[in-house]
């Protein structure tokens, strides 16, 4: 999705205004004339000016408010795009419960499949890659990756 600069500018101007408004609620340091709100206010002001200029430029350019690129009209590629986001979300919500190994292997297998890798190659590679990452982080770097269901295993 490509937005007209005026649309991006409007969004950014709102963000900058919110930052400035929030900064105004921050107290000043005791005994000083400056406070934690000063620096964000200045940056917010800079962003606001930039956003205004962007709006002016966008309006002058006279392009459509938003353009959809060719990839976004291709259902396969669009699905692939959102699948990646959905799989990261699934990892965020499920990894603690299911554990690293099952969810990582499943993620890879799904992504390989949609990428057109044959299952004969995709499934073994998914398993090998998962255990390699597990070994590198869990054993070598001692990162406690979520065990999840593996807690119920006897080893």
């Amino acid at each position: 999705m490509k937005f007209n600069d005026a649309v991006s500018g409007l969004f950014l101007a709102l963000l900058a205004a919110a930052v400035i408004a929030y900064s105004a609620t921050l107290p000043s340091m005791p005994g000083q004339f400056v406070g934690p709100g000063l620096f964000p206010t200045l940056i917010g002001a800079g962003m606001l000016v930039g956003a205004m200029l962007l709006i002016v430029r966008g309006l002058r350019a006279g392009r459509p408010w938003a353009e959809v690129e060719s990839w976004a009209r291709d259902p396969r590629r669009l699905a692939h795009f959102f699948l990646i986001v959905a799989l990261i979300l699934a990892y965020i919500f499920l990894s603690e419960f299911v554990g690293f190994v099952p969810i990582a292997a499943a993620m890879l297998a799904v992504l390989f499949a949609i990428g057109g890798v044959r299952a004969r190659i995709g499934l073994p590679v998914a398993l090998v890659a998962t255990f390699a990452v597990d070994y590198a982080f869990q054993r070598m770097l001692r990162v406690p990756l979520p065990r999840g269901l593996a807690d119920f295993l006897p080893f």
Partner: peptide, 29 residues
């Protein structure tokens, strides 16, 4: 098609590993 999913997995684990917190993955996404 094989490389990119593996990189994604490394990204997720890397983002997790800094604070051992799934919030790192939220930030990354």
């Amino acid at each position: 098609e094989i490389l990119m999913p593996v990189i994604l997995l490394n990204c997720i684990v890397g983002a997790y590993a800094i604070d051992n917190s799934v919030f790192g993955v939220v930030l990354m996404l």
